[in-house]
């Protein structure tokens, strides 16, 4: 007995097993009927689609268990299409499986690698071409061409320059100035301290000068959240405390992480949560980050009241609002 390990052998492609439809005309006939029924069902689906499109009014609702009150046109139009398409597919596949020959066929693979001669020939051709062009012998041409091609690639980049203006101070500044009134969003009504009970919040924007329009760009930087606490709840340094007014504190609503609106205020814990990435800020400690990915507190807006008793900004934001960027200094 030899020590050679003998592997299990490939028994070869198994013999074709006949389907019932191959041998019995009755089964073949039945499969034919099944395929035709599927195709007819598909035709019915298209008819359903047409009928739904033409005859069902768009405001018709029907009650469907599980789904509830459902728009009839949308549902039947879609179901008609689904039936029409699915049944064509199911019919074709059933046809292929039951009635078309199912003998497995063997095809040979060829090697992808070219013959050695062809490879050598190829290398020779390329070398001959290159030397005919003289690339190797004329370095001046090679280098100047390289330069030209490289430079020409700059053109499309250059042309893209006018896609937008340079950022300049845009990311650093908001519309808030000393004395800008805080007005409700929406509604644009100025707010007095007494309007807010302890535990109240208000979504605010800077008041517009007459004739001014508010753009989304403005809202994207200017949105401010007002929160009123009991003054003794604050845990702020003297400067930040002086930025509050009678327990009212104002923060930029634009998240310092990725710019979502942070307005989810929990009155009991006095935490602000950003619903996008769940950064949590502690309002009593000047929006210090206590959880989540944000790395900076929300910028605080210093507020006070004007001569008429309305809440105004005491000064502009002292730092850029919103997500970080390279030019941001702190």
């Amino acid at each position: 007995m030899s020590n050679e390990i003998e592997l299990i052998k490939d028994p070869g492609l198994p013999a074709h097993v006949h389907r019932r439809a191959d041998d019995d005309e009755k089964y073949a006939k039945r499969a034919e009927t099944q395929v035709s029924i599927l195709f007819l069902l598909s035709a019915f689906g298209t008819v359903l689609t047409i009928v739904s499109y033409v005859f069902i009014p768009t405001d018709k609702f029907i009650f469907i268990p599980v789904m509830g009150e459902t728009n009839a046109e949308q549902l039947l139009l879609g179901l008609g299409m689904a039936i029409a398409l699915f049944c064509i597919g199911a019919g074709a596949i059933h046809w292929a499986k039951t009635l078309m020959p199912d003998n497995e066929v063997i095809a040979e693979r060829h090697e992808f690698r070219s013959e050695d001669e062809d490879r050598a020939e190829f290398v020779k051709t390329v070398k001959a071409g290159a030397s005919a062009a003289g690339l190797g012998r004329r370095p001046l041409i090679k280098r100047s061409l390289g330069l030209a091609l490289g430079l020409s690639g700059l053109t499309p980049l250059l042309l893209l320059r006018d896609l937008g203006p340079l950022p300049k101070e845009n990311l650093q500044k908001t519309s808030w100035k000393a004395g800008t009134r805080l007005v409700t969003d929406p509604g644009d009504r100025p707010i007095k301290p007494a309007d807010l009970e302890v535990g109240a919040v208000a979504q605010t924007l800077p008041e517009l000068a007459p004739g001014e329009e508010r753009t989304l760009n403005n809202i994207g930087k200017d949105a401010v959240l007002l929160i009123r606490l009991r003054p003794e709840d604050f845990n702020l340094d003297a400067e930040r405390l002086s930025w509050t007014h009678e327990g009212i504190i104002a923060f930029s609503k634009i998240c310092s992480h990725m710019g979502c609106a942070v307005a989810l205020y929990e009155q009991q814990t006095k935490h602000l949560l950003c619903p996008c990435h769940q950064s949590t800020f502690d309002v009593t400690r000047a929006a210090k980050v206590i959880f989540g990915p944000a790395a900076r507190p929300l910028p605080q807006l210093a507020i006070t009241v004007d001569a008429d008793g309305y809440l105004v900004a005491k000064q502009p934001f002292t730092e850029p609002v919103g997500p970080s960027f390279w030019e941001r200094s702190s």
Partner: peptide, 18 residues
């Protein structure tokens, strides 16, 4: 009233009609 975690929405910032 601002029950539990919910803040209060004052009648001046969100009017009764609102």
């Amino acid at each position: 009233t601002g029950p539990q975690s919910m803040p209060v929405f004052s009648d001046k910032t969100i009017t009764p009609a609102e």
